[in-house]
């Protein structure tokens, strides 16, 4: 379980996170929604150690992640699929997947996972040897998810997986997220697409300018008037 208590982050001269607390119970899908600039990406980057925190604590299964280098955090099972895919454009699809498994030592299991990724995303199999930079946006997102699967994460964090993707592709990605979760992976999902996120998630938190303003079960938040007005675009 991931536990964040009173997390404070100063980033680029702004007090980006002002005392954020949230929990990601094991095996669940938790989503963090909010408007642009609310601090969602900052939260994920702070967890994975790409950004320094200025207060509060982040712990994974009781162990504090404070000050740990990203490499060690990832090796302990926490993986981030960053915003904008960030696949390695100069490397082939296959190599991108191999990089996902960079820290793993169990060769045969890695190959099994690779086969599984290609089964989930047949289009990636077709483009195995192509450079990742030549893929379309949707394919790159598939590659990013596939690469994340190759890490066999315990906690999978995703930063705006739906961004810039066609609705059908978004649906496919979310279906796969649910499938991965069903197999036991805990998921922390950051999304601007509040509707899709809240429909998929067990729990949700709403982040507004660095603070958590609402929390509850996914279904509850979907029905909440404040959420509907601010993020779901539904008239009262």
């Amino acid at each position: 379980m991931l536990k964040i208590e009173n997390l404070s982050v100063h980033y680029g001269g702004i007090h980006a996170l002002q005392g954020v607390s949230l929990e990601v119970p094991e095996g669940k899908i938790v989503t963090l929604i909010g408007a642009n600039g609310a601090g969602k990406s900052t939260t994920l980057k702070a967890i994975i150690g790409l950004i320094k925190t200025s207060g509060g604590s982040v712990s994974w299964n009781g162990k504090s992640l404070a000050g740990m280098p990203t490499k060690d955090i990832v090796e302990s099972g926490i993986v981030l699929v960053p915003e904008g895919r960030r696949v390695f454009a100069n490397l082939s699809v296959d190599e991108n997947l191999s990089l996902g498994a960079y820290a793993r030592k169990d060769k045969s299991a890695v190959e099994a996972d690779r086969a599984r990724v290609f089964k989930l995303f047949p289009r990636l199999d077709d483009r195995k040897k192509q450079k990742a930079g030549t893929l379309s946006g949707g394919e790159q997102q598939m590659l990013a998810v596939g690469r994340a699967i190759m890490t066999r994460p315990k906690l999978l964090m995703m930063d705006e997986p739906s961004l810039g993707l066609a609705p059908l592709v978004v649906k496919m990605i979310f279906d796969i997220i649910k499938e991965i979760n069903a197999e036991g992976t805990t998921i922390l999902l950051v999304e601007q697409n509040a509707k899709a996120a809240l429909m998929a998630a067990h729990f949700g938190y709403v982040l507004e300018t660095g603070r958590i303003t609402l929390e509850g079960e996914g279904r509850q938040l979907l029905a909440d008037d404040r959420v509907r007005k601010a993020y779901l675009g539904e008239a009262l």
Binding site: V87, F88, A89, L99
Partner: peptide, 10 residues
Amino acid sequence: TDVEAARLMA
């Protein structure tokens, strides 16, 4: 290619 993304691969 991408230092930050490389970090994320451990």
